[in-house]
């Protein structure tokens, strides 16, 4: 029972496939409370899918996912919606509502789920925007924001209801070095200041190694390496090393599977 207390999210032997394509084959990973857990892996292996599975938007084919001890796939719709108020997700695009100002975006979850008065909401929104450094941009529309600012505004919205869990989907993708630095700092600070549990899904190795408390590396539908940043760096798995150092060829081959070049060009067949 001790483990249930320490781990907020627990994925047990979970299998998921989309059509004919198997995305996860008996994967297990745990997210400790109050820590930043990073999930890394090459593009296109379904890291976003993992977050949607944890959020209950997709249902696994087998195995189980628990959130604070309760099984997500087994939850009723009502219970799921109730639990989703305790989790929050920062989408890759930010997913701000384009027809509202930044202020209204951040106020949205408060207006939907609480009965607070407008003046209290205004105060909370100002505080959340202050935390991400965008209080001055409250009246701007999402289309007027740069990519990094949009992601910070979305982060302010994600923490509006003070969730227990926050999931970041590729928070660093397509950011300039300064925005990236800002986001790294924010993820770390918010996690410690609000006593959050964070899951960061990414393939940006250097940023993650500086902030993650625990790291999982996924490939081939399973976990190929796990541990703290130090343990990962010292891993003797070739696959992990290839991923960390961005080598072009290795266990993940440079060439997509194809027939022999000589055979294809010269028409030799043997």
């Amino acid at each position: 029972m001790q483990s249930n207390m320490d781990y907020l999210v627990d994925v047990k032997n979970m299998t998921f496939s989309r059509g004919e394509r198997v995305i996860y084959d008996g994967i297990s990973l745990r997210v400790p409370k109050g820590k930043i857990t990073a999930v890394m892996g090459p593009s296109g292996i379904g890291k976003t899918t993992l977050l949607k599975l944890i959020g209950g938007q997709l249902i696994p084919d087998g195995g189980d996912i628990t959130f604070d001890g309760e099984s997500i796939p087994a939850m009723s719709r009502k219970a799921l919606y109730h639990n989703r108020r305790r989790m929050s997700m920062l989408f890759q695009s930010g997913a701000l509502f384009t027809d509202m100002t930044v202020f209204d975006n951040v106020a949205f979850p408060l207006r939907e789920h609480t009965k607070l008065s407008e003046s209290i909401i205004a105060t909370i929104v100002a505080l959340k925007l202050q935390a991400v450094g965008l209080r001055g941009a409250a009246q701007m529309m999402p289309s007027e924001l740069s990519g990094g600012m949009a992601r910070r505004a979305a982060l302010a919205r994600a923490i509006a209801l003070d969730p227990d869990l926050i999931m970041y989907d590729e928070p660093f993708a397509g950011q300039d070095p300064i925005s990236m630095g800002v986001l790294v700092k924010l993820i770390r600070e918010l996690n410690d200041a609000l006593n959050l549990t964070s899951i960061v899904v990414t393939h940006d190795v250097t940023e993650v190694l500086t902030i993650a408390d625990y790291i999982y590396i996924l490939a081939d539908q399973r976990v190929i390496g796990e541990g703290t940043a130090e343990q990962i760096k010292g891993s003797d798995s070739e696959l992990v090393q290839q991923f960390l150092h961005g080598k072009a060829d290795g266990p993940v081959p440079f060439h997509y599977p194809a027939d022999d070049l000589r055979a294809a060009f010269l028409g030799e067949s043997d």
Binding site: G55, Q57, H82, M89, A95, E112
Partner: peptide, 18 residues
């Protein structure tokens, strides 16, 4: 496409209703 519907669901707001 811009994940606003997913985002609503994750905020525990039913996109059908909203």
């Amino acid at each position: 496409a811009t994940e606003q519907l997913s985002s609503l669901e994750m905020m525990a707001v039913d996109p059908l209703r909203r």
